[in-house]
Nucleic acid binder design. Structure first.
Lengths: 246, 246
DNA sequence: GAGTGGTCTAGACCACGAG
DNA sequence: TCGTGGTCTAGACCACTCA
């Protein structure tokens, strides 16, 4: 019925999925070699590899060239909260979430200049955030700020909240935050940095913050893997405006 | 440098990409058969098919079984505007965007019951929106409403704004709209309904609208293809609340 | 029925990782 | 060096579309 293509690779993937979910294959464990699995399921190696590719796309296994295929540890799902608060991942409730920040100076060009509404080759400062849970990368964020709003020295490069606080002290209050969400496949660079398959969808958020003078004070490009992150936006309607439809 | 795998299929895909972008291959046109292309590029058929799979994942071509591979028409990018306004795709500026709505009665269960905060097997009404631009599907929306808030008869099933207006007239004013955005690959059903590849990322938005009494009056599950849609959320900060960082 | 894409095979050879 | 995954070949057979 719902199986127009119950092909071999789907059957194999289904079997391995079950073995993973039932705990017969444990997280971190290495799978048998592809040749062994192909022999066990009595299929050719390309077919077996197609089956593994399905699981890789679901984030269940990780392929490491020359080393083997490994069952991934299930990752805690994190939620990005919209509305213009902390730069990348505000709530680090319990687990060992760590953020590393690196700073680069560059000049605006193309899309970036348009986003920040500055002239091309204006000086900018870029903060590259990489958020980890343990050893696994969790999210990636490029934050761009006009150079004159960026601090000369970064107080604590390993803490994103310290960076955010320093940034906030340098600029007037915000008036508006616009966030544009989109879905796509990662670039090879992003896939490598996040340790995800190139066939794992990512959620991207482009955030532009404007101060009360109408100046763009920050643009952020966030990349969140689809298997471990989503974004939440809450809109409160004042009670006096009764109609919410156009 | 940046080419760890300048494999044959990437070279072929690159060549076809160029032919498409330069107009040597026009939109709607049928490509030569895979056997012919394989002969032209002097590769085996699986390799050529891998190259086409790359283009399919980018939304550049459409594979139709038994018929051929076709160059896709570039689609206008649409923007879903968050904040709890029209159900699916509010701004239909110029083009021939059309929406078809079908209505189903069902009972709450599992995730749906939790989302709407109703008891399992509560009566619901589902509105299935399918938004087209010309002949191409553009987005998909499942909207669920408690049965007592759904009209007995639908005024104009082919107009989503008429449905929305009828819905709005039946319920008290909204107090809060929560929208959760996520990225993933489509289910086979979604890929078929939207005429996209299963490797094309989709942006999903789960929207829950609550009225001033705290009752959930609507839950919507939107599926937007990543190559033709994104979502925009705007947060205005009242000028009196000076600090926007925690 | 002719032509198309979809799946699979049984190998070959190369690139990478660890001992 | 050796075992691993990554890529590719040259076919075979099936499923689908259309005249």
């Amino acid at each position: 019925m719902t199986h127009p293509a119950p092909s071999r690779r789907h059957a194999i993937a289904e079997d391995l999925r079950n073995q993973i979910s039932t705990g017969r294959l444990e997280a971190g464990e290495r799978l048998p070699s592809e040749a062994q699995l192909a022999a066990r399921y009595k299929v050719s190696t390309p077919t077996l590899r197609n089956a593994l590719a399905l699981l890789q796309g679901e984030g269940l296994i990780e392929k490491i060239h020359g080393s083997g295929n490994f069952i991934r540890h299930p990752l805690r799902r994190i939620t990005y909260v919209g509305g213009g608060h902390a730069p990348a991942v505000p709530p680090a409730p319990d687990g060992a979430l760590s953020v590393s920040v690196s700073t680069t100076h560059l000049r605006a060009q193309g899309n970036l200049a348009a986003l920040l509404k500055v002239a091309p080759s204006s000086p900018l400062t870029e903060f590259l955030h990489l958020c980890h849970e343990g050893k696994m990368p969790h999210s990636l964020a490029h934050v761009y700020v006009p150079r004159d709003l960026a601090p000369a020295v970064i107080p604590d490069p390993s803490s994103c909240s310290a960076v955010a606080a320093t940034l906030a002290s340098l600029r007037p209050p915000l008036a508006e935050v616009q966030e544009r969400a989109s879905a796509r496949l990662p670039t090879p660079e992003e896939a490598g940095a996040l340790r995800i398959s190139q066939s794992m969808a990512v959620l991207t958020i482009t955030r532009v913050a404007t101060d009360i003078a109408g100046r763009v004070v920050e643009a952020a490009l966030l990349v969140l893997p689809g298997d471990r992150a989503d974004a939440l936006f809450t809109t409160c309607h004042a009670s006096e405006e009764g109609n919410s439809n156009k």
